[in-house]
Structure formats: structure tokens, C-alpha cells
Amino acid sequence: MEYAIKVTNLCKAYQDFALDNVSLAVPKGCIMGFIGENGAGKSTTIKAMLNLVHRDAGTVEILGMDLNSHEKKIKERIGVVFDECCFHDNLTPADISKILGKIYQNWDGKLYQKYLTQFGLGEKKKIKEFSRGMKMKLGIAAALAHKPDVLILDEATSGLDPIVREEILDIFLDFIQDENHAILISSHITSDLDKIADYLTFIHHGKIVFSVSRDELMDSMGIVKCGTEDLAGIGKDQVIRYRTNQFGCEVLIRDKKSFASRYPGMVMDPVTTESIMLFYSRGEEL
């Protein structure tokens, strides 16, 4: 399998937080959702992947090139959208095109204009007059207009209304139609990832908990609701995490097929990205 992004054993230590041997790989033609609670290390990982912060250890390969030795070449071929608009308020989208046109070799002014029209963004309107959603769309238009092969999105859809999010997710799905493209998207909005992500990487306290195909997760994991007294009867090998509530407890099951054959009387619900995230973050181990 060819990987668009390959991060290996990435480490970055701060006084009160550390990324601990973070490894992930995004295959070409795929969208990887990068999930985790606030402060788990998603943005730090992305910053380290872009050389925005210095890495203590580890390697980052994008499109088969090492970031340290081919930083400019790599950045020419990636589009990045952060969780906030980084353009100056007094500039206009037309100014942004002129600026980025002088920076990117492959800048396509017509394509940028096409995205502006598609997003309903006035070319001559000052950015300070844009709403948050419009600013994010501008960021996405700017990230796509130099025809990148990889998109790296850090909470790019946060704070947007469902209609704008839907519109943006459709653009990401269009982008990924080219099998050489790939997207790494970090988001708290797990319903978005349920719609578009092929792979999920979950980071918790700076460590990768899992990085697997979403289908694999959905096919294997399940949630069982039972009484606290029933929990003792479930084999430890079957339970990933459990959460207790006033009615009993919910158990995240590792292999729902094997569980169903061993405990045919128990009812199992399907998992969602959000439920998995909650179990790993707030649940307890048996």
C-alpha cells in the first residue's frame, strides 16, 4: 500500500504534555479522521508534521519524501487549513490570490475563482466582513487552488453550521476521487468523520490508541448494555472499556461476532465514532 502521509515515532515533550511515539499512516486515496479530546495532542501532532514546532524525535514522510530534506517540495504539494482563518482582515480574496499566486508554483487563479463562486465569496469583499463560515471556506479555497495532493485539516469544520459543513465535506469527497490524493482531518465533530473517514486514528494523552480502518472498527466493535452484576460474567478478553450509569453499565466489546456466539442472550448495539471515543476517554478497563 502506498502512503500519502507516514508519521513514525513522533515525539515532542512540553513541561506538562508529551507526544509519545505517535505513528500514523494515511494511504493514498483515503481520508483519515484524527480524533481525540481537547488537549489530546491532535494539533500538536499536525504542527510537528508541518515543522511548525520542533520535533524531539521521529520522522514525517509526505508523498514519499522526508519532511526534513524536502520541506519546500512537500509544502508545494500539500494544502493546509487550520481551525481559524489566518488571513488579514483588511485583505480581500483577490489579494489572497495575488499573494499566494506569487508563492505557489502551481497556483491556479481560475480554479480559486471557481471555488470562490461556488462558496459564494465576493472577490473584492474585505475578509473582516466575512462570517466564520465564509472565512473557513476561503481557507479551503486557498488550500485547494494550488492543486495539492494532500490536504491536512486541523479542526477545519469546527464552529460551522451543518449546511456549510455538509458543503465542505462534499468538496473533500470530490477531492478524494483522485486516488493519488489523501486527507488527514482532525475533528471533534465525529458525525462528520462517520460520513467521510476511511480510517480513524485516536489519540489520547499524547499516545495513539488505535489507527485502523473505520469499517474494521465498526464491524468488530459493539456496545452491550447490561446490569453491573452481568459485567462480571463477561470475559475480560472481550471487554475494551466499560462505563457505568444509573441504569447499569455499557460495555465496549472488542469482537462482536465472537461475543454474540458466546453470549447469545445479550443485545448488542452498533458503535459510532463518538461512542468509541467516549469509551476510550471516559470508560474504565476491566
Binding site: V80, C86, F87
Partner: peptide, 11 residues
Amino acid sequence: ARWDKYAVSLP
């Protein structure tokens, strides 16, 4: 504008 963060993502 928080441009510096964006600038580092440019080639």
C-alpha cells in the same frame, strides 16, 4: 491575523 502559523505551511 495568526498569519505566522499559516506561513509555515507555505512552500
